[in-house]
Write a protein that binds this DNA or RNA. Structure first.
Length: 124
RNA sequence: AGGCAGGCCGAGAUGAUCGCGGGCAUCAGAUGGGUAACACCCGAUGCAUGAGGAAAGUCCGGGCUCCACAGGACAAGGGUGCCGGAUAACGUCCGGUGAAGGCGACUUUAAGGAAAGUGCAACAGAAAAGAAAACCGCCCGCCGUUCUUCGGAGCGGAAGGUAAGGAUGAAAAGGCGAGGUAAGAGCUCACCGGCGGCAUGGAGACAUGCCGGCCUUGUAAACCCCACCCGGAGCAACGUCGUGGAAUGGCAUAACCGCUGUCCGCGGGCCAUGAGGAGACGGCUGGAAUGCUGUGGCAACACAGCAUCUGGAUAGAUGAUCAUCAUAUACAGAACCCGGCUUACCGACCUUGCCUGGCG
């Protein structure tokens, strides 16, 4: 198990355009199963890693709020990381909400979304 | 009791479990990357450490980097504008002067020049910028007329005098009082204001006093004039490396393929070269640094000594859960770095500070 941040803009758009998604009450999850032999700048991307991105709309929250939301999502992801298969690109996006949800709400929503996409081997 | 001024702090604190960034130390290397081999990267463990007073707005001033000019002056454009000081510098800060406000402690200040010139001053008003103007009013004399107590009085008229009063206006040509006069007027005088000169004090802005002629509207946040300052762009700056592809040169061209058949030639191969897109690394944090003490200074600040090392991420590190403390937690996240300004903010604390009023 190894998770690595998703970096480049074109990789994000690939996940949005060609991947599957699931929307919950607080989060939207996009996932994309990388085909074998995919390269970035002629360097092959290892098959045994999962790449993750966390997004918050710049318009809905200030810098502090965005940081907080990202941290909550990252922490939730960390706890269920082991149950997720390799070779996948994931993007978690906070939905447009009035307030930042609590850790519990994000955590549960993340699990249910990933289950719906068939990405969780067994519920934690 | 009310107020004035200044300072200081602010992810609320503590504990437990799990987790993140870079740093240091140790370990593991018959296993990944890397090297000639080490180092190093990657991995594990431990240790300490890890956002702000505004990190924000990006409004000024610098450092740093590249480009331009490599000398000076002027013009254009922009900025600043009482005086002195502080500073690397500033439009900032400190101390003062003048003005305005407040009973006061204090506060505010968009403070150069209106006698270099130009423009503007709506409406109202007779007149709104020149040494002006007579709407009402006031007045001597004159003419007509009425009355008469024969002194004059009233009314009307033409020509004049008058800026004291009324009326207009944001503003009416110094203010106010006395003398003066037919009525008036800086016409004369005292005081006040302004202007000019002189003296004294001060480093200066200015202050005080005396003298003079009797006096010149406001607006420069209208143009403008004067003095001083300013080259441009920014860390996505800039520097180093830079697979492949393309370019140029060299070498090899047996076979095969392409340039529609044939021949020649060229390309596909290998090596080198200087640019260089993506990307990587550096720039990247030890600094006009912070704390304490001392000396100088009213102060801003400067100097000296001692001590300390205090974020450097790169899709972007400070988090999660639980428990306790008191009800509960504002504005808000470094992105090259400093000095300011401005704006946002739940609240906590300090000064044997100062002022006004009440009671004793």
């Amino acid at each position: 198990m190894r998770s690595v941040p998703l970096k480049y803009n074109y990789e994000f758009s690939r996940v949005y355009k060609r991947g599957k998604f699931s929307t919950g009450r607080y989060l939207t999850v996009h996932c994309f199963r990388r085909p074998a032999g995919l390269k970035h700048n002629l360097t092959p991307i290892p098959a045994d890693i999962t790449r993750v991105g966390f997004c918050v709309n710049k318009k809905q929250l200030g810098a502090v709020g965005r940081n907080r939301a990202r941290r909550l999502m990252r922490e939730s992801y960390r706890l269920i990381e082991d149950g997720i298969p390799f070779g996948i690109d994931l993007i978690f996006t906070l939905r447009n909400l009035e307030e930042i949800p609590t850790f519990d709400e994000i955590s549960k929503d993340m699990v249910s979304n990933l289950t719906r996409l068939g990405l969780l081997k067994n519920e934690v």
